[in-house]
Every structure is written in C-alpha cells, then in structure tokens.
Nucleic acid binder design. Structure first.
Length: 780
DNA sequence: TTTTACTTCGTTTTT
DNA sequence: CGAAGTAAAA
C-alpha cells in the first residue's frame, strides 16, 4: 500500500494530475495541504521530477515551514531542494539577485507601514498638500492599490490626464516612488511588482526562472492580487504546470488588493485547466459544518460547493450573550479552565478569535487572572516596536546609510541635540548635492549656517564609522549589543519612560537572541540578509505548535489553522460585521465579512462557542450592540444557549448546567428586539460600566506587552534565550572550537555586567570578538 | 530647540 | 481611551 492510498478519490486525482494547469477548489478542512504535500512527493518520487524544479508558494512563513516539514517526511530524498516560501520571500530572493537591472542597489532596504507613513508625510509636505484633504493613509492606499494592479507611475499619470481627480495622486505617486528609489528602498507592494517588472524587462532572467520552476503550486490562491497572479502566470508560462489551490469562500483579503476573480476566472486564463473540487471535510462535526454552510449560503456570486462530513455526533454550536465585554471575557476564560479540567484537554486545544485586535486586551487580562497560559498573535508586530525599530535603523545605517528614513530615525535617538532645524538644513544640502542624509552629515563642515550644531553631528558620524569598522569582526548579536552600549540606549529607554524601560530592554535582548539564532542557522548571511528576513516575519510565524497555550488572535490570523475548540468573541452588529462593512454601499464588503465569519466557524473541529456582549467600550465610549446577523443566520436547531443576565460568572456550571437545560426559558437571541439591526444606541445611556478599580489596578502591571514579556512573566524562556554563564570553561590561551569558525586561540576575556566578551583568534577566520553566551565555544 | 499641555480624531483586517 | 499632532512655554 502506498502513501497515496490514504487519499480520497478527488484528492488522489489532484495528486496524479501533475501536468498542465490545475484548479483545485478546496473547501475548508478538505485536506488541501495534504494534497499539496503528497503532490510534491509524487512529483519527486514517482515522476522523477528534480526537487530543484518545484516551487510551492504559501501564505505565511509558518505555513511554508509546516509544508516543508511534511514534505521532508514524505519524500525519500532531496526535499530540501524544493522552494517552499511565501510570495514575498520568494520575490525578495529573486530581487536580491537581479534588482540592479532595474536601477536599484541589490542591498535595498524594505519599508514597513511605519516607514511608508514617514515617507508619505515628507512627500505631502514637499507637495504642499493639505493634510486634512489628503490623509497619508488614503494616499498610501491609493498607491498600494495601483501597485497591486501593476499600474506604474507613468501609466497612472496617463490615467490622471483623463481623470482630473487623480492628478494629485499621480504627483504623490511619482514623488513617493522617487523618494523610495533615492533611499534604495522597496515597500511591501514593490517586492511583488518590481519582480514582475523585472520579468517583463529582462526576458533572460524570466527564462532562467521558468526553467528553474517547472512545477509551481500556489496555496490560498483566493487571496492573491493581480500582481501576484501576473507573477505566477509569467513564471508558469513556459511549462504551464501550475496548480492553484483555493476556496473563494475564504477570500478575506480584498482590502489588501486580493482579487477574487483570479480564482473565479482561472479557467479563462488557462482554458486547458483541469478543475477538481474537494468537498469532503475532515475537520469539523456536522453541526459546525452546517452552521458554516448556513452562514456562507447568504452570499451571492460564489462557486457553489457542498461541504460534507461523515463525522456524526458532536455538540451543537453554543451561543451566549453577556451584559458587558468584561463578562464575556470572564466567561471565556472560566470556561476554558473548566473544560481543560473536566476533559483533561490541553490549553493549545483552544483558540479565541475576534474581529479586531483591540478585543485582545480584555481577554488577555482575564487569562492572566485565571492563570491560563496564552499567546496573543498579532497586534503590534515585534519588529514594529519602537525600541526594535531604533536598533534596526542603526543596523540599516551601518549596513548602507542610503536609507534616509532610518538615519532620520536615529540621528537624535538618544538625544544628541540635533533637532528639526538642523535636519532641515542637512536635507536641503543633501537635496542640492543629490546625496543622502548621512552622506550630507559626513560633509558637515561644508554646510553653511549650521553654526555650533555642526559640532554635534561629528560624534554621530564617528559613531557610525566606528560601527562600520567593527562590523566585519562582530557577529550580529554582538553588534547589536555594541550599539546599545555605545549609544547609551539603555539609559535612553530609562529616560524615555521609566515604567516601560525594562520591558523594552527585554525586547532588545530578544532581538539579540533572534539575531544569534539567525546567525547560527545562516552562517553565510550578511547584515542585509538579516534585515530583510526580519522585515518579512508575520506574527503568526512565531507561534510554536508545541507550546501548550490558548491562542488569542484575529480571524484573519486564524486562517489556515484548526483547533478542537474555538470561541468566536464579539459576535455583535457594528463589530462583526464591522460598522464600516455593514453600512457600506457595496454589498461585497458585507460579503467579505461573512466569508470571515465562515473562516472563523470552520476553524473549529469539535466545539464552537459564539459569544457577544450587550455593551462594549469602544474608543472610550460605551456602545450598545445587537447580536450579529451572522449568529442569526445559523439555524436555531443547531444553536444552543441564550443570554445570561447574571452579573458574574463565578465558574461555569458543571456538565449540562442550568442555562443549557432550559434554553427555551430564556430569550435565545435579540431577534427583532431592541432598537433594530442598525445598532442605534438608546438615549439616556447609563454611565460606562466600570469594574471595581481595585481589580483594574491590581492586574495592570501584569498586562504583558508581547510574547517575549509573557514568557518572562511565566518564567519560561524559549529555546535559545540567553543565559549569562557563571563561569567559563576556557581561559586566555586555551584552544577552543566554534561551530562556524572552527578552531582558534582565546586572546582575551573581558567581564561585562551581563556576559563575557571573548576575543578569539581563529586559525582560518581570523580574529573575532564575541559574547560567551552566544558563541558556545568549546575548549579543546 | 526642546519640552509641555492641549486638542483632535479614529482601525476592522496584514504580507 | 489613546496616539498623534499642534501651539505655546521654557
């Protein structure tokens, strides 16, 4: 019996259809990842395809990692040669090789949303735009959609000549793009569309990749945008072995430019395509599946699918409404605790999903109070924290110095007395000479009118020059520590905000740890490589499946995951569906929201619990919300539970508690009740519901700010977290071994507050300075 | 030039 | 409620 016999008929067909275009319509939980991995295995083991010639594109790095792992297990040999990556990292790899053909430097930097805003702010200022009329957000989103549609600056200008409303945007687009190029930077959208541009302009480059990737697979195809489609289409144009997998019902990234027509029209672009539907669901119970089907059925213009399962039994979908969001959170935490104790299930069997990141906080507080180990996925990305961005800006400046945004960020951090006035003079000079900000600072003596501030610039330039000199000798973690040390960044954090300083410093330490891990895994990597790796990590990527923790995340982050028990919190009109989409003139906005509900429901394997609150604080205002229409769309016969008017849920009722015995004795839902579906708040609202201040104050210090600090709270250190060694097993003069550099002699050892600084003269690699906790030197 | 006190305004969602 | 931006003070 072969591994392929475990597949059902359709899955098997999809695996065996290796040649030509394939459209795989895979419903939620229908085992599409299994199909993809088996297909890769089949290509290699049975069809004799060189693993080198296979490209698999996933949505997140985490998904890529999982797929790689599974392929490794399945394939007898050579799985490591398969390219499994996201669109962004695949394109980044390609661009690092060839972007010089488009007039950029190959060590370009990547701008995140924050950096984009900074650039846009400057652009708007330069063009004298009224910030009230033209918001950065709006400008950026217009440019982003243009890029996602592969509309270049000059094409946009042509459109603007006809459409007067676009003329301002056209100017902004040009200015923005020129600024990026001057800084040798790409934004997220550029990573994709510059690759397409590369393929368009350099047929030889395209050809080499077409030869390389003879078999291409794309996961989550419903979330690709036009640029990504074009990219894939060109790559696959020669051999036409393109297999896309997706589910139009799970398309939830329209706001990011995802074009649902990519999947709906696939057969138009590839008329010879074979379409296969996967409709058997292996994940959820019949109840959960029915609920999902009932909800999604309200959408129009979708490819009809009939998801079915042979899983019988299970529990009905549970619905509970609470007076306040606090009670909702209390219930969820208490219920999880109760279930884990009753059923002996693990914490990682539970996920709490919600529409907006802001909802995480209340839930988080409650988890802490109940002592439940948890992780919040998303929110502020680790790499977008102030302190991390500061350090990264130093690294970027050391690495290239062409990135004005980075230079500007750190030039006065910590305070060096270089303020706006000075910077403006520097920028004028830089503009005049056509050089970067940092370069201008190197010529500080040539600039008129700087006066005595010129003297403040010199030490900064010296500092950067010093780092650059040391850089070749230092590993990334040591370099980061050196930055912290020489700039006095620790003291700066203290100065900045005493309360958060410790947490922030811990984040910096975590960055050091990450840098060490990266350096170890990629011994040949340059600073540029490290910086670009860091730019593309999503929050979900860092979730460790082995951690026994409840996961708290948005519905968007939950895509592609599954859990035995899922809580969907905040099922309220105005929140989910959001106020924006519910009131939108465009029905498709609401439909996307409904697909999101569908994604949420289908994450659950055995138990699905929907909760909502009558009142909720949003932006400092108490809002009164009706039950979400998505709850109403679930047939009553598969829904259980109702409203709870009790003020406090001490502990959930054991077994089939009171509220479950008599669901009919309580109002099951607010169907038709209250002020109507629009969620109009009643007049004469009471004062905001306030919890006892004692509690509120008591748990405040415990609100952890991220995964890193949570681990510290729980006293857990993740693998690789550094531990300053008490004593070293080697001394000056000893022969030691290092994983990367080989053998060498210890030249000197310096004790520092947190660690030992060891200088080793390696036989082959020369002299290096490293920290003992990372170097893991072994005495010979 | 930097710090501070005050006003304004808004987020769905993220690679 | 907060972040972020603005005006005024130090």
């Amino acid at each position: 019996m072969s591994i392929y016999d475990t597949l059902n008929k359709e899955q098997k067909a999809a695996v065996l259809q290796t040649e030509g275009p394939v459209l795989l319509l895979a419903g939620a939980g229908s085992g599409k990842t299994r199909v993809l991995t088996h297909r890769i295995a089949y290509l290699i083991d049975e069809m004799g395809v060189n693993p080198w010639n296979i490209l698999a594109i996933t949505f997140t790095n985490k998904a890529a990692g999982e797929m790689r792992e599974r392929v490794d297990k399945l394939v007898s040999f050579g799985a490591g040669q398969v390219w499994v990556s996201t669109f962004h990292s695949a394109c980044l790899r390609i661009l690092r090789q060839h972007i010089d053909r488009l007039g950029y430097g190959n060590s370009f930097t990547i701008y995140d949303t924050d950096d984009q805003k900074t650039v846009m702010k400057n652009v708007a200022k330069r063009l004298n735009l009224d910030p009230k009329m033209y918001r950065e957000r709006a400008l950026l989103s217009e440019i982003s959609s243009a890029k996602n549609e592969l509309i270049s600056v000059s094409e946009y200008e042509k459109e603007a000549a006809v459409d007067f409303g676009k003329s301002v945007y056209a100017k902004v687009y040009r200015e923005y793009q020129e600024t990026l190029q001057a800084n040798n930077a790409l934004d997220f959208d550029d990573i994709i569309c510059k690759t397409v541009e590369l393929f368009r302009q350099c047929p030889d480059v395209l050809d080499s990749y077409q030869e390389r990737f003879q078999y291409i697979m794309v996961d989550e195809y419903q979330d690709t945008n036009t640029a990504q489609f074009e990219l894939v289409r060109r790559l696959a144009d020669k051999y036409r072995n393109l297999c896309v997998v997706g589910d139009d019902d799970q398309s939830i990234y329209k706001f990011r430019g995802a074009n649902i027509r990519n999947i709906l029209d696939f057969e138009k672009y590839f008329p010879e395509a074979v379409a296969i539907k996967l409709e058997q669901n292996y994940r959820s119970t019949q109840f959960i599946l029915n609920a999902a089907n009932a909800v999604i059925h309200n959408n129009e213009g979708r490819k009809e699918k009939a998801l079915w399962t042979n899983r019988t039994g299970g529990h009905k979908v549970l619905f509970r409404q609470f007076d306040s969001a606090y009670e909702e959170a209390e219930y969820i935490a208490a219920d999880i605790l109760h279930r884990t104790q009753k059923e002996g299930s693990a914490y990682k069997d539970y996920a709490v999903l919600f529409r907006t990141n802001a909802q995480a906080r209340l839930l988080e507080e409650r988890m802490i109070m109940e002592g439940i180990p948890y992780n919040v996925v998303g929110g502020t990305n680790f790499y977008s924290r102030m302190e991390i961005k500061d350090i990264l800006a130093y690294l970027k400046t050391i690495d290239s110095g062409r990135d004005d945004v980075a230079v500007r960020r750190i030039v006065n951090v910590p305070k060096r007395g270089i303020g706006n006035a000075t910077l403006e003079k520097l920028e004028d000079y830089a503009q005049l000479r056509g050089i970067g900000l940092y370069e201008a600072m190197e010529h500080e003596d040539e600039i008129m009118g700087l006066g005595k501030t010129a003297a403040k610039i010199v030490p900064f330039v010296r500092l950067i020059q010093g780092f650059r000199r040391e850089c070749p000798q230092l590993e990334f973690p040591e370099l980061i520590r050196r930055i912290v040390e020489l700039t006095g960044y620790g003291e700066y954090l203290q100065d900045y905000d005493e309360e958060s300083a410790e947490d922030r410093m811990a984040n910096v330490d975590e960055l050091v740890t990450k840098a060490a891990g990266y350096a170890q895994e990629h011994p040949e990597a340059s600073l540029t490589d490290f910086l670009s790796e860091v730019a593309l990590v999503a929050d979900i990527d860092k979730v460790d499946g082995d951690d026994d923790r409840v996961l708290l995340m948005t519905l968007h982050s939950a895509k592609g995951l599954e859990f035995p028990a899922v809580y969907l919190a905040g099922m309220e009109e105005g929140l989910f569906p959001s106020y924006m989409s519910a009131n939108s003139a465009d029905i498709s906005d609401l439909e996307e929201e409904r697909r999101l509900a569908y994604v949420g429901i289908t994450r659950a394997m055995d138990d699905l619990i929907l909760t909502c609150a009558r009142t909720r604080m949003i932006r400092g205002e108490t809002q009164y919300n009706a039950v979400s229409r998505f709850v109403q769309e679930i047939p009553e016969e598969i829904l259980e539970g109702g409203t709870s008017r009790r003020r406090k849920v001490q502990s959930p009722p054991a077994g089939d508690g009171a509220f479950r015995k008599h669901p009919e004795s309580e109002v099951p839902m607010d169907k038709g009740a209250g002020a109507g579906g629009g969620g109009t708040p009643p007049f004469g609202r009471p004062k905001a519901i306030v919890r006892p201040t004692a509690t509120a104050k008591a748990d405040k210090p415990f609100i952890a700010k991220g995964i890193g600090s949570l681990n510290r709270l729980a006293g857990i250190s993740k693998g690789g977290a550094y531990q300053a060694p008490q004593e070293l097993s080697y001394a000056v003069g000893d022969r030691v071994f290092h994983v990367k550099y080989g053998d060498g002699n210890v030249v000197s050892i310096e004790k520092e507050p947190r660690d030992y600084k060891v200088t080793v003269s390696f036989d082959k690699a020369g002299q290096k300075i490293m920290y003992a906790s990372f170097a893991k030197l072994k005495r010979l």
